[in-house]
Design a protein around this nucleic acid. Structure first.
Lengths: 134, 134
DNA sequence: CATGTACTTAGCTCATCGGTTAAATAACCT
DNA sequence: AGGTTATTTAACCGATGAGCTAAGTACATG
């Protein structure tokens, strides 16, 4: 019984070895052997991890002679990030509903104006919203 | 053996029931009974899910009489989102900052894997592969 | 064709996970 | 004290997951 895409994506991300593999792949496409080197783990274990990542849509694999180069596949990352985005207002002050609307407007404006990358403002501040506690 | 925080967070997110619980909590703090209603599942099962979410730092729980109100806890969301953010350039065109973000990420993940990987790439034939992402 | 390299599949073990029911705890209300 | 409501803990079960070793497949080259 196959899990829904979001579940298999998050499940794939829930392993430090696999996250390290992805981090490595963020630097560029590479082979299984190369990916396996940093780990004190058998090659079949790595192969399984790659299969999990591929099935989760986080990587894609090609074929080049006897090598199977792996590379990051964006779609599942985007989907996971999108899901988390629904909660962004809980930690990102600049991301409440109003700001969301404003940003959409800005994005639309920016499509006509000179492109300045300001899609997201990183705010270091962390603050609790009003809560009915005591 | 406790998992690292990022792993337990992603593992907690890898279940549709738990994600639905979080989606419900995004609408506001509520009780276990209330959270359990939409699911065709026993109460202890929900209780376990909440424990997983709490342990992952995705929710926090208070006490109000005999109720244990649950609410979203931002920190782990933020951390997961931050990790995913390291890959944002792969799908977000407006995310072109090639800072030392990857370095941070590598450092964090490499702390869990033995960094014995400084070997030269064993290139037999100067076979040029990869680098499609340049 | 034979051998080597890169990788995957098969089959096993053991731990963890998601679910169950039954019983226990905690706080409220007579 | 006794009962009701809300929630957790205990004990169990089947499925899945991460690791292993050994064997199999795909391609390259001598």
């Amino acid at each position: 019984m196959p899990l829904d895409p979001l579940s298999s994506t998050f499940a794939a991300l829930a392993d430090p070895t696999r996250r390290a593999i992805l981090a490595r792949l963020a630097l560029g496409e590479t082979s299984v052997m190369e990916l396996a080197k940093p780990f004190d783990m058998s090659l079949p274990a790595i192969s399984k991890h790659l299969k999990v990542l591929e099935h989760a849509g986080l990587i894609s694999r090609g074929r080049e002679a006897q090598w199977r180069p792996c590379r990051i596949a964006p779609a599942s990352f985007k989907q996971a990030d999108g899901w988390l985005g629904n909660f962004r207002r809980f930690w990102d002050e600049s991301f409440n509903r109003l700001d969301g609307l404003l940003e959409e407007m800005k994005a639309e404006e920016a499509a006509k104006a000179p492109p300045r990358s300001n899609r997201k403002v990183r705010v270091k501040k962390e603050k609790q919203r009003g809560r009915t506690r005591g």
